[in-house]
Simulated scan of single mutants.
Amino acid sequence: MRSPRPYSPQPGPAAQSLTERRKAATQLDIARAACELFAEHGPDGTTAEDIAHRAGVALRTFYRYFRNKQEAVAPLLAGGGDEWRALLAQEHPGTPLAEALERAVTRSLTDLLAVGEGLAVTRGLLRAAADDPALRAVWYRVNQESEEKLVPLIARLAAPDADTLSIRLLAAAATDAIRVALEVWSTTDGPTLGPDSPADLAVRSLHALTDAMPLLR
């Protein structure tokens, strides 16, 4: 696989205000607390009050941001998708899509932060979600939102004549490749790096789902 060509996307919206950054930081603190408690005690053994206390915030602050305890994990789950889409956004238009997707997936799932925090948290949450429909619903919603955000990135990298159906199908397949890989990995004691790691399973899933797609030929 060749090295990626550097690409600097156009500047986005204005930087977040201090208030917005504080809000995001508080939400992430609550999400981390919820993930820790779910892993320790399971969703049934955890209350919103427990999460607020662990996060060091008032219960009213918890409910200002989240409707229920399961929703509290969404910011942390969404972080993985944000990371891999950001890596894909760095790819230069004209880079073969198959290379761009595989490179972004691999980098996001072998990044030190992902290995150190994200993957361990995801494994615990997915195990907890096995018996909690509300927690599974949050996981599926986060993946659906990530898929929708992926569409314009793929459209930017695809050939000018790529049709909407093909772009949407590739976005769905790429998202599901990562989702299924993480779900399968979470049921095992597999490593975070190397064979049978999330990155390895995700790349294998990506090839299985996308190799026959016209956009990647």
Results as ranks from 00 to 15, higher is better:
residue 137 A to H: 13
residue 174 A to H: 11
residue 107 R to N: 13
residue 146 S to P: 02
residue 5 R to E: 09
residue 95 T to A: 07
residue 117 E to R: 10
residue 18 L to W: 07
residue 187 T to A: 13
residue 122 T to P: 05
residue 4 P to G: 00
residue 57 V to G: 06
residue 191 P to A: 04
residue 146 S to D: 10
residue 127 R to M: 14
residue 204 R to Q: 03
residue 28 L to V: 08
residue 23 K to V: 04
residue 62 F to A: 04
residue 111 D to V: 12
residue 207 H to P: 01
residue 89 A to W: 01
residue 85 R to H: 15
residue 29 D to Q: 03
residue 89 A to M: 10
residue 181 A to I: 03
residue 215 L to C: 05
residue 39 A to L: 07
residue 138 V to Q: 12
residue 115 V to M: 12
residue 186 S to N: 05
residue 54 R to N: 07
residue 132 D to G: 08
residue 186 S to P: 06
residue 56 G to C: 07
residue 203 V to G: 03
residue 213 M to H: 13
residue 24 A to Y: 00
residue 160 P to V: 06
residue 6 P to G: 00
residue 209 L to S: 11
residue 3 S to C: 00
residue 191 P to F: 02
residue 65 Y to P: 00
residue 206 L to N: 02
residue 14 A to H: 09
residue 162 A to C: 09
residue 67 R to S: 11
residue 154 I to Q: 01
residue 18 L to A: 09
residue 107 R to D: 10
residue 7 Y to D: 12
residue 210 T to P: 02
residue 115 V to F: 12
residue 82 D to S: 13
residue 138 V to T: 11
residue 8 S to V: 11
residue 217 R to F: 11
residue 193 L to R: 05
residue 163 D to S: 09
residue 154 I to E: 02
residue 145 E to I: 13
residue 191 P to Y: 01
residue 100 A to S: 08
residue 164 T to K: 05
residue 198 P to S: 02
residue 166 S to H: 11
residue 83 E to C: 08
residue 202 A to V: 03
residue 211 D to F: 07
residue 146 S to A: 13
residue 116 G to F: 09
residue 68 N to W: 04
residue 197 S to E: 10
